[in-house]
Amino acid sequence: MKPPPFTYHAPRDLATALRTLQEVGAGGAGGKVLAGGQSLIPMLNMRLVAPAHLVDINRVAGLGGIGREPGGVRVGALARHAEAERSGAHPLLTRALKLVAHPVIRNRGTVVGSLVHADPAAELPAVLAVLGGSVRVARWQDGAAVERDIPAAAFFTGPMESAVLPGELAVSAWFPSLAPGAGCAFVEVSRRHGDYALAGVCAVVGPAGAARVACVGVGPVPVVVDVSAHAPDWAAAARAVREETEPDDDIHATAAYRRHLVGVLAERALREAAQEAENRGA
């Protein structure tokens, strides 16, 4: 459990980081970005990945921070889970982060890193997806940094696959605010406290009955379902959600159980979110 050899880069500024990534072709087999390292380091140690270059962005100035802006929250690439959780900047993000692993991991792991890692059982991709957020990526082109925003719907392309291209660096993520009077919830079942969920559902319910869920662990990417048409019949909405999912068997749970579970959790999440919306409206 020791990583194979790689060249280590520790740029101090964004321009150098982007130039380095362009040179080594990050994102493909050539290089990997190291931020919190909570997934990458174990994968390196188990030799599941063997990048020739590791670009450590932890010293890059200007990539940290959690900014409350009109209409949403922008989370920098170096903002740790714990920081985002403590900031309370976004209610759904705060709730989801309490379900992410354990405090020690949350102290190191980053929100943006989790999004780019794109584990279909992880909570944060579902949060980004249900809110319709986006990820901002930058690359070095013609002697300058060029940015583009990738909407959540296009960002998660498969299990552990995102739309970040070789040479690009995810610099921040955008989590839109809930609509006024909306409620939200995140419920999941995991085998142990802090484990990846067997299935999980986050829900946002608006005051006028607009209702959306994103499910984790039951498809290759977060499964987003708009169930506004069923509001407030949350049992019917949950059945609709269940129909949309295609879970797989694994050693922890069968596909049939996961499908059952996502229905149970969708109903619970929608009821909880609707209750919160109602309490806000009251």
């Binding site: 079942v189 085998r191 749970a253 069968t254 159980y257």
Partner: peptide, 8 residues
Amino acid sequence: ISPSDLFH
């Protein structure tokens, strides 16, 4: 026995 086992 896991929750999945109990479900089945």
